[in-house]
Design a protein around this nucleic acid. Structure first.
Length: 810
DNA sequence: GCGGACTGCTTACCT
DNA sequence: ACAGGTAAGCAGTCCGCG
């Protein structure tokens, strides 16, 4: 008998004697690896009988059994109880059974019975269910009371008598190891795991730096280790991980690149990659690689899916992400000739080893930087870190709703069938309101926006599947036909209020002057950010075709109220101001000079009139701003630039904020905006463009500024039209590169004949870029509209030598 | 057979 | 695999032209 405190990090289920055993791998608070076995949990599902009297059904259920070779699945226990289904009280049978792997088969079999109306929670993963019912959050300190089991294993095993969490402290002593591999890629070709070896591996951790390679050269670098060939390199790779005993093993694109590559090379030598803490082999799946007892994190996935919207960078290359998040760039190196150096001049390999180690270092530092946010996601949703880092917004929302369901005794609705999915996917509905701005340059633009508009609507108007069309209330949603109950708070509003209230408390603490350590601040900041992200995602989940809580009417009601509120702000503002622009939850007013005082009054009055949970916020005053015309000659929505009081440009929707424009065009546009809005020098702006065009014509611009990035959204074969990026992707595919959905294709339009697609090539294949294309299709379209909004015809101005008609200052 | 107008596919943005 | 609203480039097709 003993009590141990540990952090569970990887939670699995296995069968023993026809019963499930949950195994929690983790590390104790004293730093030892441990695995905890919990035999005390059974899977269950909820059965809704057709009739009140379910005695006969219960008797027959007790005898229910499905046999499959050596395994069986049978009902062990039935409890008749009351639960909520979509917020309505319902009498159900909770049927416990022995084998979680048989849940779906049981569901299908039982549903054939005429006396059963519905079966639920058969599609809730067993481990998730376990963690929720036992109130265990992955990675949080857990107290287990039990006995050491004497079995042959790499990790001590405790058989739990009881297991519980009393505190909410996340793991602090976790061992983090980042790694990166370097493969041999023949010039101009991708490395192929069938033919090309792994030539370097680097590891990085706090106080641990190592690069292993198999060509020796003279060096004094202590972190370098030479081995004799790839076989030995792979063996050392294993050994390093085995000895280091990481809890978190971090890679960058390691799910789809590093581990599949390592696996193929290891197979070649019959090396087992038995990195699991119980000697089990790594599980290299199609989309992810899992290692028993170690949390393998592919940081690329988290960065590209969850952090992407917060990042400026167009690509998610490690270097650029690191520069943005860590402020740390990479020492540049000529990677193109790596294979040649490896083959011919190994004495020059040292910089490549440093480069490889540097990647591992950046991966490590990035992980440390985002870890607080990751743990906050985990704590809020109960999703294991392994799943969390590969997750999406829908996963987080679903997990949160699942967790809250347990608390409010709600049955978790099933995932939709394929047919339901198709039906839902075909529907659309009206969203936010967007006004059309009048193109031009304006001074003193005051911007206001609603704080968390949709979440505040959900809680103010009690929008939830269970409050929809109640019998007691009648107030209709503006412009719609449905109504929601005003008396009983619904499931969704309860959750939203909880998230919003918690976030408000955190923001208050962050704003207080009290002493806080940098760690506390970053933790609190991460926590409020995660609360906001999830609150804002809840509305979209109503209309998400794969949603368990799909409800189109709720989604429609939210946007209808949204349009109602933004329009009421616009109407009120119009009494005293010119409303320049509005989009969904924000309004832009012309609030010049003496009108500023008036705008404060407007703002206060408006907020007083709003419901308690709704708030219009003052985002700021911008001394100057520009709205441009669309191609169709009207004011372009979602495209503008504002100049802040501090002199920064806030550019939205224009070419310079789009990745599928060349750096050349983006820089040109920013420069013109800067010269016109900030410096107010029109002649200078025209001259700038004139000079730039001259340089382009003379092929003076470096090729890298001509690169256009476009992402492939689907398999190459499925494209109906062959756009430039598709044409280039096809060529890449033919030379052996793995390109598919998600690949970011880069290309340069070269001089020559044919369509743009036909002339598009990979940057390193281009001899001469097509100057005319870059002038007419990149620079001019990006800047002409800006000059036009400023009242200048750029083409005319460029024609005139003296520009006598232009005044320098505007 | 040619060139401009038009359409629809496609991507990436905004809130 | 959260939602809808939006602009715009490019390929491909349509259409007029005795």
């Amino acid at each position: 008998m003993g009590v141990v405190q540990f952090y569970p990090l990887d939670i699995r289920v296995q069968m023993a004697n026809q019963r499930p055993v949950v195994v929690l791998y983790g590390r104790t608070t004293t730093g030892e690896r441990v695995s905890v076995m919990d035999h005390d949990y059974l899977p269950y599902l909820y059965i809704v009988p057709k009739t009140q009297d379910s005695a006969e059904l219960e008797q027959e259920l007790a005898r229910f059994i499905i046999k499959d070779k050596d395994n069986y699945c049978s009902v062990l226990k039935i409890e008749k109880m009351s639960m909520n289904f979509l917020e309505k009280e319902t009498t159900v049978l909770k049927a416990f059974f022995n084998n979680p792997f048989g849940a779906l088969a049981m569901h299908d079999e039982l549903l054939k019975r005429p006396d059963i109306q519905g079966i639920y929670e058969h599609d809730v993963p067993f481990v998730s269910s376990y963690l929720l019912d036992k109130k265990i959050i992955p990675g949080v300190v857990t107290t287990v009371e039990g006995e050491m089991v004497n079995v042959h294993a790499r990790v001590p095993v405790i058989r739990a008598n009881s297991i519980m969490q009393a505190e909410d402290e996340s793991i602090k002593n976790g061992k983090i190891l980042a790694f990166d591999i370097e493969t041999y890629a023949p010039a101009g070709k991708p490395a192929s795991p069938e033919h090309d070896p792994i030539v370097m591996v680097s590891f990085y951790s706090n106080d641990f730096k190592k690069t292993i390679t198999w060509k020796e050269f003279a060096t004094t670098n202590p972190s370098l280790e030479f081995v004799n060939g790839e076989f030995e390199l792979l063996m050392r790779f294993k050994k390093v991980i085995e000895e280091f005993q990481p809890d978190f093993l971090i890679g960058y694109t390691s799910d789809v690149f590093s581990f599949p590559y390592l696996k193929k090379r290891a197979d070649k030598y019959d090396i087992k990659l038995d990195l699991g803490v119980d000697h089990s082999n790594i599980d290299v799946g199609k989309t992810a690689t899992a290692i028993k007892g170690i949390v393998h994190v592919d940081l690329y996935k988290f960065v590209s899916r969850i952090l992407s919207s917060k990042l400026e960078t167009d690509t998610f290359r490690l270097e650029e992400v690191a520069r943005e998040l860590l402020g740390e760039g990479k020492k540049q190196i000529d990677t193109e000739h790596f294979a040649a150096v490896w083959d011919n001049t190994p004495e020059n390999l040292e910089p490549y080893c440093e480069y490889n180690l540097q990647d591992a270092a950046l991966i490590y530092k990035l992980f440390e930087k985002v870890l607080p946010s990751m743990f906050e996601f985990v704590k809020l949703t109960n999703v294991e870190l392994f799943d969390m880092v590969r997750g999406s917004f829908s996963l987080f929302v679903e997990a949160l709703l699942t967790k809250e369901s347990r608390f409010w005794k709600e049955i978790i609705p099933p995932r939709p069938t394929r047919k339901e999915y198709e039906e839902r996917n075909a529907y659309s509905y009206q969203g936010g309101f967007v006004s059309e701005p009048e193109p031009g340059i304006y001074n003193n633009i005051a911007v206001y926006d609603f704080a968390s508009l949709y979440p505040s609507i959900i809680s103010t108007h009690n929008i939830s599947p269970g409050t929809l069309r109640c019998r007691c209330c009648t107030e209709i949603v503006p412009g719609e036909e449905m109504h929601f109950c005003k008396k009983t708070t619904g499931f969704f509003p309860k959750i939203v209020s909880g998230l919003v209230d918690r976030r408000q408390r955190i923001l208050k603490i962050l704003g207080d002057t009290g002493e806080k350590s940098p760690e506390q601040v970053s933790l609190l900041y991460a926590r409020q950010e995660v609360l906001k992200i999830i609150a804002n995602s809840l509305y979209g989940y109503f209309a998400f075709p794969s949603s368990r809580w799909y409800n189109l009417e709720c989604a429609k009601a939210v946007t209808a109220y949204g349009r109602h509120y933004i329009n009421s702000v616009i109407e009120k503002a119009k009494e005293d101001f010119e409303v320049l622009y509005a989009d969904t939850d924000s309004v832009f007013l012309k609030a010049g000079g003496k009108k500023l005082g008036q705008s404060e009054k407007f703002f206060e009055e408006l907020n007083l009139a709003l419901p308690e949970k709704m708030k219009l916020e003052y985002e700021g005053l911008y001394p100057r701003g520009i709205f441009i015309a669309s191609k169709a000659g009207k004011g372009a929505k979602k495209k503008y630039a504002l100049l802040s009081e501090q002199g920064f440009l806030k550019i939205k929707g224009l070419e310079s904020s789009r990745r599928n424009f060349s750096t050349l065009a983006k820089n040109a546009q920013e420069e013109v905006l800067y010269l016109i809005l900030k410096e107010r020098k029109m002649r200078k702006a025209v001259e700038y463009i004139r000079n730039l065009i001259g340089e382009v014509k003379e092929q003076k611009i470096p090729l890298r500024k001509m690169i256009i990035y476009t992402q492939l959204q689907k398999d190459i074969a499925r494209y109906e039209t062959i756009a430039p990026h598709v044409a280039v992707a096809k060529k890449m595919q033919q030379s052996g590169f793995a390109v598919g959905p998600g690949s970011l294709i880069q290309y340069v339009v070269a001089k020559g004949d044919g369509s743009i697609a036909e002339r598009s090539q990979l940057p390193n294949e281009v001899r001469e870029y097509d100057a005319a294309y870059y002038i007419e299709h990149q620079i001019l379209p990006s800047v002409e509209k800006i000059f036009e909004a400023a009242g200048v015809d750029l083409m005319k101005a460029l024609d005139e030598k003296e520009q006598s008609s232009l005044s320098e200052f505007i």
